[in-house]
């Protein structure tokens, strides 16, 4: 029983970690309607920035989020403005997706060039120490990630529902032409949203860096799992991505223990295929509108 509880706790903590990566991904997909294949590399860039800042300035890695999240916001906003936006008028929307794949490869190789293939260990500053919650052992850093993921989801939901800019973002996603007739600058909304989605993963990277060694390919692992979480939760749904991430975290931990750690990803991706076949709209998915294709 203790083992089971420990595995469930591990799964939930892992889920929190996936969630903080998945939230930005689903935000960008839900609003800009672009699947950002470079999202994992955004995470990687954020983790290297965290590493450089926390070792260079000798500060707690969490503090670097104050600089890393804005830096990632700029990276995301520039991606939309300089890469995606010029392709928005392309006849085939898939061109934009391929562009993010290209960006992903470019960032990964840039990191290889700058940092080499060696891993970089961000100093833990105590977040790798364990705490006991009843019978269960958890790293303090995992708890922080979990808490941050919950706060991020709540903050984003409030922003989207209660602020004028948040409403403008939702309106643009639901009917772009009508949004323009309200005086909303749709191009600016897309740049802003892409920036926000990237800033979310930037925040995540400062929290994840002290827990995982940073390498140029670290993003690939996280982003593939994050895609599964986003699809499970319903593409574009922020709470969906969070709960999807918890489910995938649990599945990952339980299957790793009871089926075999080699088969964890096989189980996760089998579930991914099952969702696509049985319920492609996901847990929290809404019907997809085609409003983004209107002029």
């Amino acid at each position: 029983m203790d083992t089971f509880l420990q595995i469930v706790a591990n799964g939930l903590m892992l889920g929190g970690l996936f969630a903080i990566v998945a939230v930005g991904l689903t935000l960008i997909f839900g609003i800009v309607k672009v699947i950002n294949f470079a999202h994992g590399e955004f995470l990687m860039v954020g983790m290297y920035l965290t590493f450089l800042l926390s070792t260079g300035l000798d500060v707690h890695p969490y503090l670097t989020a104050a600089a890393v999240a804005p830096a990632l916001f700029v990276l995301g906003a520039l991606t939309q403005r300089l890469l995606i936006q010029p392709l928005m008028s392309a006849r085939d929307e898939h061109v934009q997706i391929f562009a993010t794949v290209g960006l992903s490869t470019a960032l990964m190789n840039l990191a290889l060039l700058v940092f080499g293939a060696d891993i970089a260990n961000t100093p833990a500053h105590g977040v790798r120490s364990q705490v006991m919650l009843g019978e269960v052992r958890i790293l303090t850093g995992q708890l922080w990630v979990f808490g941050a993921a919950i706060l991020l989801v709540i903050a984003l939901q409030l922003f989207m529902k209660k602020t004028r800019t948040g409403r403008a973002i939702r309106a643009t996603a639901q009917n772009r032409a009508a949004a323009r007739l309200m005086g909303i600058n749709d191009k600016f909304i897309y740049v802003l949203t892409f920036g926000l989605g990237a800033a979310c993963v930037g925040l995540g990277s400062s929290l994840i860096a002290p827990l995982y060694p940073t390498s140029p390919t670290i993003g690939t692992y996280f982003v593939l799992i994050a895609f599964v979480c986003v699809v499970l939760g319903g593409l574009g749904s922020i709470p969906g991505a969070f709960f999807g991430a918890l489910v995938i975290g649990l599945v990952d931990a339980l299957s790793g223990f009871y089926i075999g750690s080699d088969l964890r990803e096989a189980v996760v991706f089998t579930i991914f295929l099952l969702i696509l076949i049985l319920k492609p709209s996901g847990l929290f998915g809404t019907r997809m509108t085609q409003s983004h294709v209107s002029p």
Partner: peptide
């Protein structure tokens, strides 16, 4: 009509007042 289908009537109306 081109309303924002998944927003409330109130939010639809408030979007109308988005301009400066």
């Amino acid at each position: 009509r081109q309303l924002f289908p998944d927003m409330t009537v109130r939010d639809n109306l408030l979007m109308g007042a988005y301009c400066r």
